[in-house]
């Protein structure tokens, strides 16, 4: 071997090593496509210092009192009702008694999702972050939604920015997750059995449906809506933590049917649906891996 050859050999090794170190990217196994460069800027009504959650006492969580409500659809009252909304062969609707819980006033936004991705160095499908920061986060799968819920739960427990009342709840055994479909339906239609959050007649001035795209969360005023929640009809479908099971609704059977192909319930309809799709009792089903422009989610605080 010539004298300079070992040096040249070492130089090659060093060059290749440096090139590879420079090009080292994130592990791709569990990552998707996009990472936000930074969290999004200021969004009116939301706190930049609190991961873009609403600037409210409980960071947007609204209490839904304990008590029974009417679940499901009676086709004699609601001509748009689908068969899967019927309670049983003998009864059109059922009464479900729920303990108190909290539901987020707004759907989770793009800004909130960006904050999550920045904090966790996570990644998500690129389209999820391409809409304005105050729009609902879409293109999220069911596990993505759960991951966000798990992250914000852990973050709020540890952060000094968490409001005391919310901190007390979290310390007292409450946790942030997705709502069950019963919780969601109760929050949407209240306890008087109405068909839509604002009443029993369709109104396009109350929700974003039969349109071409999602709008910023809370864009539609709805003084008639129970509990003051926004966009419980239309804008984007919202994932729930309920698997697709036939009525009568029973949360205790959620862990059954493990052999079946997974389908999870989503609620509320989307901008692309007509009036029948945004009824409070409407049950949508989707693959947990579905990432679509019309599917988002909102959070629940439950015990």
């Amino acid at each position: 071997m010539k004298g300079g050859v070992p040096l040249a050999f070492l130089a090659i090794v060093a060059a290749v090593w440096i090139a590879l170190r420079l090009s080292q990217g994130p592990p791709t196994e569990l990552a998707m496509d996009a990472r936000p460069p930074t969290a999004t800027g200021n969004v009116e009504g939301f706190r930049v210092d609190a991961w873009f959650l609403p600037d409210e006492e409980l960071l947007g969580f609204v209490e839904i009192p304990a008590g029974p409500f009417v679940m499901g659809s009676d086709a004699s009252v609601d001509p748009d009702a689908f068969d899967i909304e019927r309670w049983s062969s003998t009864s059109a609707q059922g009464i479900v008694d729920l303990p108190a819980f909290y539901l987020a006033r707004y759907e989770v936004t793009v800004a909130q999702m960006s904050a999550f991705l920045v904090a966790t160095a996570g990644a998500i499908q690129a389209q999820a972050l391409q809409t304005p920061p105050d729009h609902p986060a879409a293109f999220v799968s069911w596990p993505d939604a759960l991951a966000y819920a798990g992250w914000i739960d852990a973050t709020l427990r540890e952060s000094s920015a968490t409001p005391p009342q919310l901190r007390a709840l979290l310390s007292d055994g409450w946790r942030i997750t997705l709502p069950t479909e019963a919780e969601w339906e109760k929050a949407a239609r209240g306890v008087d059995g109405r068909l839509y959050p604002w009443g029993s007649e369709p109104r396009q001035d109350r929700a974003n449906y039969s349109s071409r795209s999602a709008v910023p969360v809370g864009s539609y005023e709805c003084p008639e809506c129970p509990f003051g929640l926004a966009d419980m009809a239309g804008n984007v479908w919202e994932w729930t933590r309920s698997p697709d099971q036939p009525y009568p609704y029973d949360a205790t059977d959620d862990g059954e049917g493990l052999e079946a192909e997974a389908l999870w319930i989503m609620r509320g309809g989307s901008f692309g649906d007509g009036q029948s799709g945004v009824r409070a009792a409407m049950r949508g089903r989707a693959d947990p891996g579905a990432r679509r422009a019309f599917i988002g989610f909102r959070l629940a605080l439950v015990r």
């Binding site: 993505d144 991951a147 698997p243 493990l258 997974a262 999870w264 947990p288 891996g289």
Partner: peptide, 21 residues
């Protein structure tokens, strides 16, 4: 674990989805 379960769930494996909850 969460990453693998999420992947399984997204391919419609119900046991994995229940594990994620």
């Amino acid at each position: 674990a969460r990453g693998y379960l999420a992947r399984a769930c997204e391919i419609r494996f119900q046991a994995a989805c229940v594990n994620l909850l």
